[in-house]
């Protein structure tokens, strides 16, 4: 949910309406959870969950197989997957572009903890172009302070650069 909230914040900073919400009731670290984000040029009124995502971020690639993370994705949509193994074992629907990033290692090196929200935001920004790096940095500095802000910004920037090279 933190990642969804930060992405919505950064997108809103960039000048569009944004909405972020969790798959309600099961927010806890360690269990499979979902959160959703919408962007629009107009005020967002729709309240249903997202069934046909343009983008997905998979924070833990071990979910792939247990959960059909690609469900509802159409050709041209983008998946960003946190994994150490670029050749992860999963059936990707045709036409879905996949970016892999080892966000856990980046987070461990930059933050000292395997919390990948901010790293994956950098990857999302680079892969989709939906949010600018400076909006992302602003969102992170709004959420964190002092050295924690710096560390999270550099984690996001590392992923942004990695994916930016690949995109």
């Amino acid at each position: 949910m933190t990642a969804a909230e930060l992405i919505a914040f950064a997108a809103f900073e960039g000048g569009v309406y944004a909405q972020a919400f969790p798959a309600f009731g099961v927010e806890r670290r360690g269990a499979p959870v979902q959160a959703f984000v919408r962007f629009s040029d107009k005020k967002i009124r729709l309240r249903s969950q997202v069934y046909e995502p343009d983008y997905i971020i998979v924070q833990d690639s071990t979910l792939i197989g247990d959960v059909d993370v690609f469900r509802g994705m159409k050709p041209g949509s983008i998946a960003i997957i946190n994994t150490e193994k670029p050749d992860f074992d999963g059936r990707v629907p045709e036409g879905v572009k996949v970016y892999v990033v080892d966000a856990t290692t980046i987070a461990l090196e930059e933050l000292g903890v395997p919390i990948t929200n901010t790293t994956l935001m950098g990857a999302f920004a680079a892969a989709t172009g939906e949010i600018k790096l400076e909006s992302l940095e602003h969102a992170l500095r709004n959420r964190f302070s002092g050295s924690m802000a710096d560390k999270n910004v550099s984690a996001a920037e590392r992923a942004y650069s990695l994916i930016g090279g690949a995109a």
Binding site: A4, E5, A8, F9, F12, Y17, A18, Q19, A20, F21, P22, F24, G25, I44, R47
Partner: peptide, 10 residues
């Protein structure tokens, strides 16, 4: 509950 309480929006 949740649908609005837990949603981030402008």
């Amino acid at each position: 509950g949740f649908i609005l309480t837990h949603t981030y929006e402008p």
